[in-house]
Design a protein around this nucleic acid. Structure first.
Lengths: 196, 196
DNA sequence: TTAACAAGATACCGATTGGTATCTAAATGA
DNA sequence: TCATTTAGATACCAATCGGTATCTTGTTAA
C-alpha cells in the first residue's frame, strides 16, 4: 500500500502492452500479475473487473499514442510538413514503437469489431479522433493558404489513414519497414501535389 | 461415422467462421462443437489439436477467399477491368461477405504477428499470394499493352493492398461502407491514370 | 499514540479450458 | 455373415480462467 497512483499507472502500462501485443481477451489476469509483480488484489482494487481494465488500458494506449503524435506534428510549421511528420510517425512504429504491438486502433478494431461492444465503442472514438486530427491539419493548411482549397478533405483523410493502417499490418507481418516506407512515400507525393 | 469428408468440411467451415469473427485463440472448442452439433471426439479425430484445426481452418478461409476473388477477376478481360473487379470484390465484403468477419489475412495478421508463429507463417504466405496476384495483374496488363510499362509494380501493389486492408478495418469498425467506397474510388482513379 | 482506513497479498471459488481415454456403432472387406 | 476398422460420442482429467472474501500492513488523521 505504498503508492496507489504509481501502482495504477504500472498496471495500465503493462496491461496495455500485453493487450496490444497478445490481444485483450487472450491476455489473462495472471499474465498481468506476472508482468507487474503485483497480485489480483491490486488489480481488482483499482479496476473492479478485467473488462474495466481492458477499457482503461486501451484509453491509456490511446493517450500515449496521440501525445507522441501531437508532439511530432507540433514541431512542424506548415500543413505539408505536419502531414509528413505524421507519416514519419507511423513509419517509426516499425523502428522504435512508442507502444509495442503496432497501432492500438488497428489492433483493437480487429479484435473488437464483431464481438466486444465496449472495446469497439472506444475504438470507434479513437478512429474518429485520428480522422479529426488529419482533417483539421488539412483545414488549417487551406486556411493558411498552404494547401489547395478545392480538395475533398474527407477523401484525403480516409486515404491517408487507410493506407497507413494497412501498411502497418503488412510491415508488422513482414517484420520489415519496406511496405510502410512505400506508403509514406506515396502519401508524401499526394500531399506535395496539393501543396501551394 | 457416416461421412467423414463432409464432417471435416463442416468443421473447417464453421470453425473458420468463428475464428474469423471472434478470433482464433478466443474461440473455444466447445463453441465449435455447439456450432456444428458435433463433439470433441470428431474434432480431435480429424485434427488432433486445436492448433492444427486453427491452421487448417485458416487455409480453408484463404481458399474460399482466393477462389471468389479469382472468379471475379477472371470475368473481366482488360487489366484495368480486372483490377477494378478486385476493388469491387473488397467493397463487397461490407455488403455480402463470402466469409464473415472481414478479410482473413488482416484478421490473422493482427492476431498472430507477435504471438503465434504457426499462424503468422501462414498469414505471411497468404499476403504474399495476394501481392503476387496483384503484381501479375499489373504485369499482364503491361505485356498486353493495356498499362503504362514504366510503372513500379511493387509500389502499386503495396498501395492497392495496404489501402484496401486499411479501409476494410475502418468500414468494419464504422459498420458502413463509405470508407471502403472512397478507397476503391481512389484506387480506380490511380488505375485509370496508368491505363493506355 | 492509536484508531480508522485503504492498498494490496493470499487463499479460495465454480466454471471453463484444451486434451485424452474409453466406449459405441456404422461402414468395410473377406 | 462376421471380424475389423474407424468416425464420432461420452466421460473424464489437471490446469487455468475471472472473480470474491478475507487477511495483513502501510498510511493517514485525530
Amino acid at each position: 500500500m505504498r503508492q496507489p497512483e504509481i501502482t495504477k499507472e504500472l498496471l495500465l502500462q503493462k496491461a496495455g502492452q500485453l493487450f496490444n501485443t497478445k490481444g485483450y481477451k487472450a491476455t489473462s489476469i495472471s499474465e498481468i500479475t506476472d508482468a507487474t509483480g503485483l497480485t489480483k488484489g491490486a488489480i481488482y482494487k483499482h479496476f473492479g473487473s478485467k473488462k474495466k481494465l481492458e477499457e482503461e488500458a486501451l484509453m491509456h494506449l490511446a493517450d500515449t499514442m496521440f501525445n507522441h503524435m501531437r508532439q511530432a506534428i507540433r514541431e512542424q510549421r506548415t500543413a505539408g510538413d505536419k502531414l509528413r511528420a505524421l507519416f514519419t510517425y507511423f513509419e517509426m512504429y516499425m523502428v522504435k514503437p512508442p507502444v509495442k504491438g503496432g497501432c492500438p486502433i488497428l489492433n483493437v478494431a480487429i479484435e473488437a469489431d464483431d464481438a466486444h461492444p465496449g472495446l469497439r465503442k472506444k475504438a470507434l472514438g479513437m478512429l474518429q479522433l485520428l480522422k479529426q486530427a488529419v482533417e483539421t491539419l488539412l483545414e488549417n493548411g487551406i486556411r493558411h493558404g498552404q494547401l489547395q482549397p478545392a480538395i475533398d478533405k474527407t477523401y484525403y483523410t480516409t486515404i491517408i489513414i487507410a493506407s497507413l493502417e494497412g501498411a502497418i499490418m503488412m510491415s508488422k507481418l513482414n517484420r520489415n519497414d519496406s511496405d510502410i516506407k512505400m506508403i509514406t512515400k506515396h502519401l508524401s507525393g499526394l500531399v506535395q501535389a496539393i501543396e501551394l
